[in-house]
Write a protein that binds this DNA or RNA. Structure first.
Length: 248
RNA sequence: AUUCAGGUAG
């Protein structure tokens, strides 16, 4: 059954919804994980009604099933539906709480996010980071920092989130300070600091960082393209294009 | 290492 589920996951991840359905129907047996994978496939496809049907009809929905449904509402910006499902589910986990917090943050419901945050039973680095972002999106830098400081061991995601918050609020030096504080920087952290430099008008520093970063992905290149485009340096942009290794 | 939540760019 694990083998079947692994295959189902592979189809689902590649976005082959029809193949996923066929495989699911032809499986000799299905456990809750199989159903959850199918649920996730519908969710990723944006077929929320189908996802709802699966959740309501599957034999043994568990907390993961509900979390997938919450995640689907979250990704589509359905705040009310997300809250309703959250209230309806039997035993919300920390993932459920964080998902609801995230949809509040993304849709600009800061008051609701704050109230929810206070009720979360077992705060962890993920839920706190989601709250940091909720504040950051509203420009509440001090509150974001205060929430960040509640994290016992801030990881790279938490640090990058705060770094981005500083940058967007115009505190470039604080953003750079955060970047220095990140020991093993991943590509997202590099991309974030480059975008921060660009946003704050330090194109040349951005270029230096871009050259220094070990592994560039499509976001790195895209950030530099728009940087050049925004300052009207189309020659540099086309030069970038030429030296860019053909990738995604 | 069979499924679910937080960070950059798009």
């Amino acid at each position: 059954i694990i083998t079947w589920n692994t295959m189902l996951q592979a189809f689902a991840q590649n976005g082959h919804l029809d193949d996923s359905k066929d495989l699911f129907d032809s499986m000799p047996e299905r456990d809750t994980t199989s159903w959850n994978l199918m649920l996730q496939a519908f969710a990723d496809d944006g077929s929320l009604q189908q996802a709802r049907d699966v959740l309501q009809n599957m034999p043994q929905p568990d907390v993961v099933s509900w979390n997938i449904m919450l995640g689907a509402y979250c990704q589509n910006g359905y705040v009310e539906e997300c809250k309703r499902a959250f209230d309806e589910m039997p035993n919300p986990s920390i993932v459920s709480w964080t998902t609801l917090l995230t949809v509040y943050a993304n849709e600009g419901f800061l008051e609701e996010a704050m109230a929810l945050f206070l009720k979360i039973p077992d705060l962890n680095v993920v839920s706190c980071t989601a709250m940091v972002r909720a504040y950051a999106l509203k420009g509440k830098i001090e509150e974001a920092k205060w929430t960040f400081d509640q994290i016992r061991e801030p990881d790279i995601v938490a640090k990058t989130t705060l770094m981005q918050a500083y940058s967007q609020a115009g505190y470039l030096s604080l953003a750079l300070e955060m970047f220095e504080d990140i020991l093993s920087r991943d590509t997202i952290a590099w991309n974030a600091i480059i975008a921060a430099l660009v946003e704050n008008g330090h194109i040349n520093d951005a270029i230096r960082m871009f050259k220094k970063m070990p592994a560039k992905d499509s976001s790195s290149w895209a950030t530099m393209f728009t940087a050049y485009a925004q300052c009207g340096n189309l020659d540099a942009a086309s030069f970038l294009f030429e030296i860019m290794p053909c990738r995604d």
